[in-house]
């Protein structure tokens, strides 16, 4: 009896459960995930915040007057000394819903714009990440699995794309499309659409996903289970879908936060250069650009979105590292119970 019990296979957890358990013990990764989720929740609440604060973050409100401690204060304060040159936007009131972070040079509530800006940055970075992963994975799968001329053509195309410095390519594509949008056949994207930065950022990072995926697929292509499937007459697309794709899923998952961080940085850079999100819409990059002209009097307008980008990117990178360690079977991170 006892021998029988000893011979029974021990119930083990699946690889995903192990990975999640590993990840859960990585305090830094979990803390960063929490921080990032908080940012996401805050940004997605932007419309609610603007409604509650009674502010329109996209319209010029140069003549607006707000109340601070019972006193009427103009949002754009005129200089009253000397020659009376220039206007200075109101600084932080530290009152939520009442120009908490002050106003920008258009008299708009910086806090409301920060939240909307974060929403744009997150949506663009998220959508671009999805685009890159889909296109990059498809290219990597096809090139690696079919080989031959298909691989040669796809690899050279990726090489050409890779040969351009990322930002130079992104800036060039943005400049070309910024005024007229994209009109190719049935594809018609207006110049002010958020889809433009999504596609541009998505395209420039495709080789960064496609090349490692191709490498993995090449190696899987020569594994015994794939040969077996081929010899059994299983169609290629089915082998790709059922046998190869599941084996590269962990790589793809690790790519998500890292690509997201990269995309957020690229989007901010493009918007800062006026070739990403277009005014009056906001992104953290455009708010930094707006704040550049106020660095001397209202430095927070540029510093706060800069800080938001830094925190978000750092959170995503640390979480991405934790995720990679958790999904890597050779990882030295060990679970206490294992």
């Amino acid at each position: 009896m006892s021998n029988q019990v000893a011979a029974m296979p021990r119930k083990t957890r699946g690889p995903w459960a192990v990975a999640f358990a590993k990840l859960a013990t990585d305090r830094a990764a979990m803390a960063c995930l929490a921080v990032f989720l908080l940012i996401v929740i805050a940004c997605f609440s932007a419309p609610l915040y603007a409604k509650w604060a009674g502010t329109d973050p996209f319209a010029s409100t140069l003549d607006a007057v707000i109340q601070i401690d019972g006193a009427d204060v103009p949002v754009m304060e005129p200089s009253t000394e000397g020659l009376g040159l220039g206007y200075t936007p109101i600084g932080p009131t530290w009152q939520l819903g009442n120009y908490f972070l002050g106003a920008d040079s258009q008299g708009r509530d910086v806090m409301a714009r920060m939240l909307y800006g974060g929403l744009s940055s997150l949506l663009i970075a998220g959508a671009a990440t999805l685009f890159t992963l889909i296109v990059g994975t498809l290219a990597g799968l096809i090139a690696g699995y079919f080989g031959g001329i298909t691989d040669t053509v796809l690899s050279r195309l990726l090489d050409i794309l890779w040969a351009f410095p990322i930002y130079l390519l992104a800036i060039s594509l943005s400049i070309v499309t910024i005024a007229q949008g994209i009109r190719i056949g049935p594809i018609d994207i207006e110049s002010g659409s958020l889809w433009l930065p999504v596609i541009i950022i998505g395209i420039v990072y495709v080789p960064y996903v496609a090349r490692p995926i191709r490498g993995q697929v090449l190696s899987l292509r020569h594994s015994e289970f794939v040969f077996a499937a081929i010899n059994l007459g299983v169609p290629g697309w089915r082998i790709l879908w059922r046998d190869i794709l599941p084996n590269i899923t962990t790589t793809l998952i690790v790519f998500v936060p890292l690509m997201m961080a990269l995309n957020m940085l690229t989007e901010s850079a493009l918007s800062f250069l006026s070739i990403g999100v277009q005014p009056p819409a906001a992104s953290w990059g455009t708010i930094i650009q707006d704040g550049q002209a106020l660095l001397y009097t209202r430095p927070l307008v540029a510093l706060v979105p800069g800080l938001a980008i830094a925190v978000s990117v750092m959170a995503l990178n640390v979480f991405g590292d934790g995720l990679r360690d958790a999904l890597d079977p050779r990882s030295k991170v060990r679970l206490g119970r294992d």
Binding site: G82, L83, G86, T88, A293
Partner: peptide, 19 residues
């Protein structure tokens, strides 16, 4: 002149400004 310096210059350096 940068717009965020106008107020300061208009009050502290009036004699150095020519309009």
């Amino acid at each position: 002149l940068p717009s965020d310096r106008l107020g300061e210059l208009g009050s502290k350096s009036m004699d150095q400004l020519h309009i």
